[in-house]
Design a binder for these strands. Structure first.
Lengths: 193, 193
DNA sequence: AAGCCAAATATAACACTGTTATGTTTTCGT
DNA sequence: ACGAAAACATAACAGTGTTATATTTGGCTT
């Protein structure tokens, strides 16, 4: 990994965090990194490669947000911490979050490596959620539970940024999400008895 | 409303349904509508106006999907029908759906009129969900319940289109959403007793 | 009906985008 | 030290949304 490559990715990440997709032009990245426009093509594969790198960055952050418990008994607490972390990531890396959730340049499609980063995060989430189910629950059931939890949290994050959410006065979004997750987890746990 | 305006909007809507944002260039719209490029600027306000019109189209579809019950007793059934309709809209007008949920050209911001279309849909959803709560529940509580239901369904719709969802084999997405909504509605109703 | 003014059109240009092409320079291994 | 590969710079191409500048059209008033 050359130094120029690091500088380019750093510049791209900075521009992305500040101005989102709109500020992320190849020429702007190159200039900000002190590199020729072509450098973005030699070190990455043009804009596609840049977006892939940012996509992976985004999902790596999500991956790091997922906390696995020491024992199955600590699963509920780990889920709560994970949701808190997830909300922080969605807030602090909003552009990355929008990118990995298709709220993007419409024509970008993640590469196989980028897709793998997403799969890793989802597998880890599945491992976490599995602790809420019966130890003998099949993998498919674990994945379905993980998907539902993820959808619940992501839906709230997504609507939060939507203009319509200005109609409602929510004093504490984080608490609202935590409450919703708590109710959901309660329902899941009640089901396995 | 001139005839040319209708033709332009129709062409834009068709292009949008087929090819999404990528196919929606001002020149393509004009050519497809049999109009000069400038016609898009005189009749609409350039691309911004086109996107606003499509945004309103999208939210009008969502609005039409919401079924209000005859009596409070029919609320559960009306919610179920509404969710079914909502899923159909999200599927049949995927591009519109992505547009109204910020999965778009990054720089587009809905105009006040477009925003109003979104507000109308959300108010109608609030009226529907209110039937699940105590008749004396304050508006803020109704809105919070409407937001949660919306987030749940939207989260599942959003994740369904995500690449990671290919990891899971879901035989019947519609049923999965309906089950999740049923559980949620059950929890809401249990709460008011 | 004639004239006039505003609306709609056509053509061209501008600034920007991602990308490709073409040399030129630098770097590095043999 | 030399040759090959990588990195560079400059310029060009085909797009994008938008603006500018005539030119034509349409509709209303006198």
């Amino acid at each position: 990994m050359s130094e120029a490559k690091d500088k380019i990715l750093g510049a791209a990440s900075d521009l992305f965090l500040e101005g989102g997709s709109a500020a992320l032009s190849v020429r702007a990245i190159a200039k900000s990194a002190g590199v020729s426009t072509m450098g973005v093509y030699t070190h990455f594969n043009g804009k596609e490669g840049i977006l892939d790198a940012l996509y992976i960055e985004g999902f790596d952050n999500v991956f790091a947000a997922i906390e696995l418990p020491e024992t199955r008994l600590g699963t509920r607490a780990a889920v709560k911490r994970t949701v808190k972390n997830y909300l922080s990531v969605a807030e602090n890396f909003e552009s990355h979050y929008r990118l990995i959730f298709g709220e993007r340049d419409a024509d970008y499609e993640p590469s196989p490596e980028a897709y793998e980063a997403g799969a890793r995060a989802f597998h880890r989430l599945t491992d976490l959620v599995a602790g809420l189910l019966s130890p003998r629950a099949p993998r498919a059931r674990q994945q379905r539970a993980a998907l539902q939890l993820w959808a619940l949290v992501h839906g709230l994050v997504s609507l939060r940024h939507h203009a319509v959410s200005e109609l409602i006065e929510i004093k504490d979004w984080r608490q609202l999400v935590l409450d919703a997750v708590d109710a959901h987890v309660g329902a899941v746990e009640r089901k396995i008895r």
